[in-house]
Design a protein around this nucleic acid. Sequence first.
DNA 1: TATGAATGAGGCTTCATTCAT
DNA 2: CATGAATGAAGCCTCATTCAT
Lengths: 191, 191, 191, 191
Amino acid sequence: MSPRTEQQFEVIRRSRKLQIMQTALELFAREGYHSCSVARIAEYAGISKGLLYNYFTSKEDLLDSIMALGIEKFHNILEEIQHELDTPEELMMYIHGGFEIIRREPEFYRLLFSVFFQPGVSDASQIRYRETLEHLTQDIAVYFKTKGDPNPAEKAMLLGNIIDGVGLHYFLSPETVNLDKLEKIIFELFK
Amino acid sequence: MSPRTEQQFEVIRRSRKLQIMQTALELFAREGYHSCSVARIAEYAGISKGLLYNYFTSKEDLLDSIMALGIEKFHNILEEIQHELDTPEELMMYIHGGFEIIRREPEFYRLLFSVFFQPGVSDASQIRYRETLEHLTQDIAVYFKTKGDPNPAEKAMLLGNIIDGVGLHYFLSPETVNLDKLEKIIFELFK
Amino acid sequence: MSPRTEQQFEVIRRSRKLQIMQTALELFAREGYHSCSVARIAEYAGISKGLLYNYFTSKEDLLDSIMALGIEKFHNILEEIQHELDTPEELMMYIHGGFEIIRREPEFYRLLFSVFFQPGVSDASQIRYRETLEHLTQDIAVYFKTKGDPNPAEKAMLLGNIIDGVGLHYFLSPETVNLDKLEKIIFELFK
Amino acid sequence: MSPRTEQQFEVIRRSRKLQIMQTALELFAREGYHSCSVARIAEYAGISKGLLYNYFTSKEDLLDSIMALGIEKFHNILEEIQHELDTPEELMMYIHGGFEIIRREPEFYRLLFSVFFQPGVSDASQIRYRETLEHLTQDIAVYFKTKGDPNPAEKAMLLGNIIDGVGLHYFLSPETVNLDKLEKIIFELFK
DNA sequence: TATGAATGAGGCTTCATTCAT
DNA sequence: CATGAATGAAGCCTCATTCAT
């Protein structure tokens, strides 16, 4: 057995870190950031409290890391469909992208909202997310402008609001929300 | 000189209670339920910590009372416009009602969302609010059905989601949201 | 209606005071001194907290007053049978006196013990009661000495201890203790 | 340098826990359960308040643990002398056992009484102790029955009451109670 | 005399974080 | 790298007592 190389350690560190973040995301989303103690996160992740602080400087840092990763995924999903936004089909792709985030990362999405309503908690993430959203909204506004809509900016914002509104209700009572159907209806309304 | 009458005490109690609730609503909405200590609420309300417990059995009870009052106001605003929902004008009244809640009770609305994303916090209020919403949604669904819409239930739910989505963004960055314009656009989309 | 005379007021005060003490004794005995708030005593006595402080300077003063009254009654019961202690019949009277206190004033007796085990609580009463007891013990010791017992002082003390021991168990589980039978057995053992 | 083993932690935990219990027993016995704050216990034990909650879930749990340990010791002392109870010598062993508890564990015994007179405080311990006592009483009753005593059950109970009565007075004023002498006198009365 | 609103000290408990091993 | 004992600040809540009316 040769001693592990530095790279191997790095791999272990990275996966350990991700595992903690995944666990914490689950707990934060399910129970709320404040209601969830570091002790419980460590226990749930199968490690000691001390080790957690080896990977994150604080509970807030852990939250920030989760948020950053989530926002990155958010970006990635959008970039999968990122290109010119001219045709209704392309608009549909955008709408679909929004719904995909709800479908694929429900916990992150839920935590995102939760954090938004707790000023002082991960403010940096809030700002970063809002910027991302603004860019997106501006892209969509261009589409409506091209289409000759009299209120392109508001229309674009409204579309964003709708998706968040649907997400919000989806997390409050998933069983009553038919994402697929709503996706189509929204497209019909905005195309 | 002569001892206070029962009625005088009642007046004191009622106004004090409202004062505390108003203060707490402000703070809860601004800083989040968990981030806001009872000590701060008392200080902000200009009373002692102890007195707060003369009016509410616990911090959670204070929150519940605030939520209950808010939901009552919510009801009242809806009942102001409560009648048959047949014509587009009447639908507009409904939409307007939703926006009025955002406009008139922004703090309550914000707290409502905030609470929604903190499981275990005022669950009873969450349930009560959701029930209120469901009734409303069913009323609106009837309108769309009458109009011959193929997905009346989803359309109605979507309308609710939109209003909440707008509210959500309004509270995150009020300066970027033009409520009046959005109200009209939504009406145009759904009438 | 002529206005009430000062004496009438005094009568009212006295009976009110007694009523409060009786109520408090009940509660203290049932729930313990510390577990029983002034608010509850007042409520239970059908008066306001403020009025209670009109009659007693503090919660401790209320307890002291109850204890003093109880010890007075204790004295009275003993004095009913106070005279020379020469014959076995007279010893029996003493034993009977002890049991009568248990029977007639169970709440006071229970409170007495309870207070004994809480140093700092009504210390004055504790001292006064112990003095009373010592005198009594000395009287009884004379009886045993006269009878030629080799350990009269210890015998007398033991008799006191027994009665308190019986009282103790009687308050812990009254249904298992047959006071009448025990009284006789004790007499047979000591006569 | 190398991390502590599980066993090392176990040793630390065990001794710390005992240390806290010992300190608390001392204070509870001396000052009463309610009069003794967690802060004082921690200070007296030379630890932080927080650490106490690392070992006990609540102040009541701490008390219960102390009581449970005391009752266990009580059992052990009785079991040292546990066997047939036929001869007067064996009865004397029993009586001696009772006195040994007073002598060896005065603080526990005092706390036991103290708790008995505070309803709602460690009720479970009260019940457990009473059961222990009942078994013991039944054993002793057999002895008296064998001896032909007309009231074996009462005699046995009385013996228990006496020992508790002596204990009670011993803790109220130890300097006035000669345990050795009383032990002999009791044996002479009951043999 | 009588009320109960109001106070504030102090109690119990939690929890993010540190650190010796 | 890994542990969990230990800390201490801060949180929620209770309650004896005061006082304006």
